[in-house]
Amino acid sequence: MFEFIRGKVEYVCPEYIVIENHGIGYQIMAPNPFIYTNESGKDTLIYTYHYVREDVAALYGFKTREEKALFARLLNVSGIGPKGALAILASGQPEQVVQAIENEDEAYLVKFPGVGKKTARQMILDLRGKLQDLVPDFFPNLFSAEDHKHQTSGYSHDFDEAMLALKALGYSEKEINKIMPELRKEQLSTDQYIKKALQKLLK
């Protein structure tokens, strides 16, 4: 229904962003909403997936059409809902997800929230050999050297927001508490805390 929405980023929270377009605020669920923090108030284009079921209607947003396409394909896998698909995309390393599916690496796939052995096996059965078109020419490495540290006195607030975002993605208190001590040693933006946390959670 909606291919994309272009508008100003009005609000960012652990689960979603709000894009204002001609006086209407669109609530859009995103894999890592805090990547839009630096775009607050700026004109932004976000590719959207309109998810409709009998009891829910929601918009999900992505940086690229390819991300959106991968999200849609994950939804076709039995056992994976929108929240699970977002958690997989939030890792910022979809190439590794595709590689894990192609290599039948269940041990990697079950590290995502809500993905057990049965679901991981289903992902492999349903998607293996069908995702190569999504790998080239997209998905910038969100853990690249371009991620510079933000040395600010407010980093603890960014840290707290990042922990809330991880909970929103479905990670348990136990999983989050395990990586918190090491993360607290660094001063990063919310977005960077999330990326680093996901790197550790997926090891």
Rank of each mutant, 00 (worst) to 15 (best):
L86G: 04
S144K: 05
F139H: 04
V18R: 11
L169Q: 03
Y16N: 13
E3G: 13
L201Y: 08
K68P: 01
G81C: 08
N76Q: 11
L127I: 00
I194W: 04
I35F: 04
N141D: 13
E67S: 07
N103E: 15
L75A: 09
M123H: 01
A100P: 04
K203V: 12
V115D: 01
E15L: 06
Q96A: 07
D126I: 05
V98A: 13
I35K: 07
G23Y: 02
M29D: 11
A165R: 00
S91R: 03
V12G: 05
K178E: 10
L188Y: 06
G84S: 06
Y51S: 09
I194N: 01
Q96L: 15
V97S: 05
E175M: 11
I46G: 07
Y26L: 05
N32P: 13
E67H: 04
H150A: 15
V115T: 05
E186T: 10
A120F: 05
E10I: 09
C13T: 03
E20C: 04
K117E: 11
R184Y: 09
H148N: 09
I176T: 00
E15K: 08
T152G: 07
Y26Q: 05
V115H: 03
I46L: 15
E10S: 15
I46A: 05
D43L: 12
I176R: 01
L59N: 00
K68L: 06
L134A: 01
L142N: 00
L169N: 00
F138E: 08
Q27E: 14
R65I: 14
